[in-house]
Computed example of a mutant assay.
Amino acid sequence: MQSSHGGQFRVVVVGGGFAGLTTALALAHKRSSVSVVLVEPQDHFLFTPLLYELLSGELQTWQVAPKLEHLLAGHGIAWLQDRVTSINRQTRCLTTSSGRNLSFDRLVLTCGGVLQSFGVEGVTDHAVGFRTMADLRRLQHLVQRLQTTRPQPLQRLAIVGAGASGVELACKLADLLVGKSLIELIEQGDKILPGSREFNRQQALTALQQRDVSLRCRSRVQGVAADHLTLLVQGETETLPCAGVIWTAGLAVAPPLLLPSAPVGPQGQLICQADLRLAGEEAVFAAGDVAAVPDKRRQQPPPATAQVAMQQAPVLAHNVLASLDGEPLQDFHWNDLGEILSLGRGQATITAKGFTMAGPTAARLREVTYLVRMPGAGHRLAAAVGWLGEHLGP
């Protein structure tokens, strides 16, 4: 196959999250003759599972959100700090928000998720997400304000969504704001952590109870205002005053405009084949939050987690190069390595292949496990050494 540029094949990776950055690094490592371009508007990579430790001060920014220029240095990857707005699949050319046009031989879409409001009024204007560094800064400012002002009667923070993000955040905030604010965890379903292991769910319930976090299940948010929530509880409308609302109820995907359009699933994800190519496509691949990927070994598609995205990356890199060489592609199969949840400062719970653990040791194991999985060998080593210095030093 001949490159459309007459020289090196150009692979463009859109999105510098788990799947995108790891794929770009793998491509550069496997084939120096392929030109790899990473398009990512942010100047850092964010290891989102450790965002809770960044909020609580247990880890530092350089460990959790290293600069992309440092991670990419020496790998021969071109980084374009821009945002892709549209992609022409027929001409194999994309357009960025700055007006730049970039052609490609292969395209990898790994756009991350964005806050899903479910059409609830006021979410965009008044709620704080917990997905980005900008979200973190807004929440840090809110926490600092509550910590330094005189507590008001029934002063509370409301967290909407009792999945993993909501539960982990509720425990961290309860530890940070003890005596300063009530923490209210709101879930429209009938239980917390609906997709989690039973051991982790029970440990989480205990952690929430120990921290006096108020859990409201079967409560649907109807509206968010600057100083209150409107809830629907058993058919009755209820107003819940609060000093702030953190929204962890779900993620939406927002891929760039595709021309012609591509098939999407019920959640808006791009429908892919098992080899991570878009359905009916040769040159466009997708992974991470934006991709709906079937798994022939499982009835359900893999979840939208960092674990899945990082497992997709090596398969993605292999298949991109194989498609350029005219070789067979591999199907992606998710290997479920287990589940780890942070449950407050210095506390965590782990369930992995029959192994369970909870408490401070689990928290330390969680941190070091995640740090050694950071993209970039140099950063992994520096982060692990820094962690050891903090925990094993005099």
Rank of each mutant, 00 (worst) to 15 (best):
G76M: 14
I87F: 07
S97W: 03
S86V: 10
T96I: 15
L115P: 00
N101D: 09
V108S: 00
R100S: 03
G113N: 01
H75Q: 10
L80V: 14
A78C: 14
R83Q: 10
C111N: 06
T91W: 06
L102H: 04
S103T: 09
S86I: 12
T95C: 08
S97D: 09
Q90A: 14
Q81R: 15
V114W: 00
V108I: 14
C111D: 01
Q90V: 15
Q116C: 00
N88T: 12
L94E: 01
V114D: 00
T110A: 11
G76L: 15
H75Y: 08
L80T: 07
N88V: 14
N88I: 15
L94S: 06
R106H: 08
V84F: 05
L115A: 00
L80N: 02
C111M: 11
F104Y: 13
R106S: 11
L94A: 05
Q90L: 15
I77D: 01
Q116G: 00
T110W: 03
T91M: 13
V114F: 01
D105M: 07
R89L: 15
R89N: 02
S103L: 09
C111Q: 07
S98I: 14
G112I: 12
L109S: 00
G99T: 14
R92G: 05
N101V: 15
G112D: 00
L94Y: 03
N88Y: 10
D105R: 02
C111L: 13
I77S: 01
G112S: 06
S103Q: 04
R106M: 10
L109M: 06
N88C: 14
A78P: 03
V108W: 02
G74R: 04
T91V: 12
L107S: 04
W79S: 03
G112M: 05
Q116P: 00
R83G: 02
G99A: 14
G76H: 10
T85Y: 08
G99V: 14
V84E: 02
V114N: 00
T110G: 01
R92M: 12
D82E: 13
G99W: 12
G76T: 13
N101L: 14
D82K: 10
V114Y: 00
R92A: 11
R83N: 02
S103E: 06
G113H: 02
N88K: 09
L107K: 03
V114Q: 00
R83S: 13
Q81V: 13
V108L: 07
R100C: 07
N88M: 12
S103I: 04
G112L: 09
Q90I: 15
T91E: 11
S103W: 02
L94W: 05
Q81T: 12
Q81G: 11
T110S: 10
T96A: 11
T110M: 05
R100W: 07
G76R: 06
S98K: 07
I77L: 05
S97Y: 04
T91P: 04
L107W: 03
L80G: 01
V108H: 02
N88L: 13
T91G: 05
R92T: 09
T96S: 13
L80F: 08
D105Q: 05
I77E: 01
Q90G: 04
T91F: 09
D82W: 12
W79Q: 08
Q81N: 13
R92E: 06
D105I: 08
Q90M: 14
A78T: 15
T85Q: 13
L107V: 11
R92W: 06
L102G: 03
C111S: 07
T91N: 07
S103P: 10
